[in-house]
């Protein structure tokens, strides 16, 4: 299937990256996993993903910085912010993002959001 939708996962936590990758692959998506912001921005231009799942608290470039850069170059690509706690929900930077989810071992919420955003177009 060449029209597989591409999801980019950005998270510094290896286990989470692997978990998300496998779950989304099981759902039939193509997954590009990146371990930090720099890698994400580099691959974003090359791969042109249909959706980005972005962690906020990362060493180096923060998820909010990455969000800004992505929205600058491709404002229509939906971005889901994902973080451990809901502190950032009030941060107005995250308003630019299309969705905000709190990380949980139960991925159903994340998957629902991803489906919803990808099938809007």
């Amino acid at each position: 299937m060449s029209d597989k939708k591409k999801i980019m996962i950005v998270d510094d936590e290896d286990a989470i990256r692997l978990l998300y990758q496998e779950e989304f692959e099981d759902e039939g998506y193509e997954v590009i996993a990146c371990k930090d912001g720099e890698e994400a921005l580099e691959k974003f231009q090359k791969e042109k993903p249909d959706l980005v799942v972005l962690d906020i608290a990362m060493p180096g470039m923060s998820g909010l910085d990455v969000l800004g850069k992505i929205k600058e170059s491709s404002p229509n690509t939906p971005v889901i912010m994902s973080t451990a706690y809901s502190h950032y929900k009030q941060d107005f930077y995250t308003w630019v993002a299309d969705a905000y989810i709190v990380k949980s071992p139960d991925l159903s919420q994340l998957k629902e959001k991803a489906d919803e955003l990808l099938n809007k177009e």
Partner: peptide, 14 residues
């Protein structure tokens, strides 16, 4: 707690 929770999400999921 932030770090612990982050790790746990991966651990529990996997």
């Amino acid at each position: 707690t932030h770090e612990t929770k982050n790790s746990l999400v991966g651990i529990i999921g996997l």
